[in-house]
């Protein structure tokens, strides 16, 4: 096994182009596990941990531009005002030790079904920069994940940046698992409301083969035009939102497990819509409020 250690994106992309079979590794929290437990033996590892600047982020007027090696701890603790939803998702990852190593780019690159950031990246409308020696392209998160699993990342491409729009309203993320600590997701749900545009985006992760937007459920809310009002959400509308969310995609498992996930998704969707709406209505709420950090038990 060979380990390549490029110091710059230029070197990294050149190496990626020459050795498309090389496995990129950033924080190692997925790749190392695969090597230890699943007997994954790549011939070449492309260690991105030395690419200068790849661990930095820049807060712009409309979005946060993250290097792919921005770790979960950084997102959770330094970007919670700008990206409250993504901060919640990043803070829910594994343990402190894993959050210190695991990166936003790594989470996207391995696209593990249990990856915690995916639904929030979808709901937040993030874009991913994919680069190769041929050049760079920006792909919206919506177009990044392939339906049956995996991503559109080309064999000669690397994820070189992630751009996440600043929150424009309440954001909710909730992940459930059997444990309270080191939670392995049974289902995760993300929702954003855009105060100015009166738009909703919702997505689910750790559910089907790929994380997906819940378009029918979003459409229900947008067509109901409740987001233009200031009253209580009708209970029937919330319930229907949950039901539509749960029918948008199919869990990977079958039997009792699948039935459970479907129900859980409906519950998470309805609950988080209600809570986001309460945040939306809250006086003086600007979408950056720390209430966005609250999690239900």
């Amino acid at each position: 096994m060979q380990v390549l250690r490029p110091q710059s994106w230029h070197e990294a992309l050149a190496a990626r182009s020459e050795l498309p079979g090389a496995t990129p590794v950033a924080g190692g929290t997925d790749v190392m596990v695969a090597m230890k437990l699943r007997h994954f033996r790549p011939e070449v590892l492309l260690d991105l941990s030395r690419v200068s600047g790849s661990e930095r982020y820049r807060i712009g007027p409309d979005s946060v531009h993250c290097g792919p090696r921005v770790c979960h701890t950084t997102v959770a603790e330094r970007l919670h005002r700008q990206l409250p939803g993504l901060a919640l998702a990043a803070g829910s990852v594994g343990s402190r030790q894993v959050r210190n190593r695991g990166t936003i780019g790594g989470n996207l690159g391995t696209a593990s079904p249990a990856g915690d950031l995916h639904p929030m990246l979808l709901a937040a409308g993030a874009d991913v920069e994919l680069s190769s020696v041929r050049g760079s392209r920006w792909v919206p998160a919506d177009g990044f994940y392939r339906d049956g699993g995996g991503t559109v990342l080309g064999a000669d491409e690397l994820i070189t940046a992630v751009r996440v729009p600043l929150a424009a309203g309440p954001q909710r993320f909730q992940k459930i698992g059997r444990r309270q600590g080191l939670v392995k997701s049974l289902c995760s749900f993300a929702l954003t409301l855009d105060r100015g545009q009166r738009r909703i985006r919702a997505a689910v992760g750790a559910y089907g083969a790929a994380p997906v937007r819940l378009l029918a459920a979003e459409q229900l809310i947008e067509e109901s035009r409740v987001l233009y009002g200031a009253g209580t959400l009708p209970a029937a509308l919330v319930a229907e939102f949950g039901r539509l969310a749960a029918t948008a995609t199919t869990p990977v498992e079958e039997g009792a497990e699948a039935g459970y996930r479907r129900r859980a998704l409906a519950v998470l969707a309805a609950r988080n819509l209600t809570q986001a709406w309460a945040m939306f209505l809250a006086e003086g709420h600007d979408g950056h409020h720390r209430d966005g950090q609250r999690q239900d038990p």
């Binding site: 039901r243 039935g259 459970y260 479907r262 129900r263 998704l265 409906a266």
Partner: peptide, 11 residues
């Protein structure tokens, strides 16, 4: 899933 037995299914 044992604990949802007999409850209405919101999905």
């Amino acid at each position: 899933d044992h604990l949802l037995a007999g409850l209405p299914d919101p999905a």
